[in-house]
């Protein structure tokens, strides 16, 4: 993939420029602690480097998604995702007006973008893309500024209220690194979630992408998401428009204290 190359080039350039700037600005600080990236990456920790020859992606074959939320639940359990935080979720929509209405589902998780805006804005280097494309956060480094959370065009990050650092889908890196499949993929009832290595042209994901037209969410974001969708309706590809979600309103009616950020309802 040529764009992959160009992005490598770009990153290279970025690296060099920042090296110069960084060194200029901070040659005084102890050279030992100072890092262009972060200590884990410098140490070539394999959790930070990933599986070098691979490029993990996911294909969502929406034709098979039944909106069962098994993925959402599996992720919550496997990753101990804190209360009311979600690494993945499957919004349910209805398209059209009675009687011409269709159901639509949009399973979403971190896109592990080729040009992740969450990474480029991170001032501590805590978040980064591994060599296999998995975008992760080093929880020991993150100082919790939240810039990445706002920078992600897909709302796929949150502050983990237990660890107080940015958190998100890791593509289940802990499972990938053990030769296993991500939890949401394993538990996908409809078989809609297909993950794999796009550098391997025989992989299921490569085959699907060759065979079917696929698209990504908000292609105009420039992030080059690496979660692809087959059968995506354009109206929900970007920011869908509809009446508000009532859940938070009901929570307030039920007497629960509103979350710091809650949906407005209607």
């Amino acid at each position: 993939m040529s764009e992959e190359k160009s992005s490598v080039k770009r990153r290279d350039f970025v690296k060099k420029t920042s090296a110069l700037l960084g060194i200029a600005a901070f040659s005084a600080t102890g050279a030992k602690a100072f890092s262009l990236t972060n200590p884990g990456r410098e140490k070539k920790d394999k959790r930070h480097i990933g599986q070098e020859t691979k490029r993990f992606v996911m294909v969502m074959d929406l034709r098979k998604c039944v909106g069962c939320q098994a993925c959402s639940a599996a992720c919550k359990n496997e990753n101990n995702v804190p209360k009311e935080k979600y690494r993945t979720y499957v919004p349910e929509y209805e398209l059209g007006v009675f009687p011409d209405v269709r159901k639509a589902f949009l399973p979403q998780l971190c896109n592990h973008c080729a040009e992740p805006s969450c990474v480029s804005v991170c001032p501590t280097g805590a978040t980064f893309a591994r060599k296999d494309g998995v975008v992760v956060v080093d929880g020991d480094i993150c100082w919790g500024c939240g810039y990445c959370i706002n920078a992600c065009p897909y709302d796929k990050r949150y502050f983990n209220p237990q660890t107080n650092v940015a958190d998100k889908c890791t593509f289940c890196a802990h499972r990938l690194d053990a030769g296993l499949l991500p939890a949401c993929v394993e538990s996908c009832v409809g078989g809609a979630r297909i993950s794999g290595d796009i550098n391997d042209s025989n992989s299921e994901v490569s085959k699907l992408l060759k065979q079917f037209p696929a698209t990504v969410l908000k292609p105009e974001s420039g992030n080059q998401p690496r979660v692809f969708y087959i059968g995506l309706n354009g109206e929900i590809q970007g920011l869908p428009f509809s009446l508000g979600l009532l859940d938070d309103k009901v929570k307030q009616k039920d007497g629960l204290t509103p979350k710091e950020w809650s949906s407005k309802g209607v």
Binding site: S18, L21, F26, N38, V119, S120, V121, C122, I141
Partner: peptide
């Protein structure tokens, strides 16, 4: 850390 991101952050 994170000086790599200086131009973009």
């Amino acid at each position: 850390y994170g000086w790599e991101n200086f131009p973009t952050s």
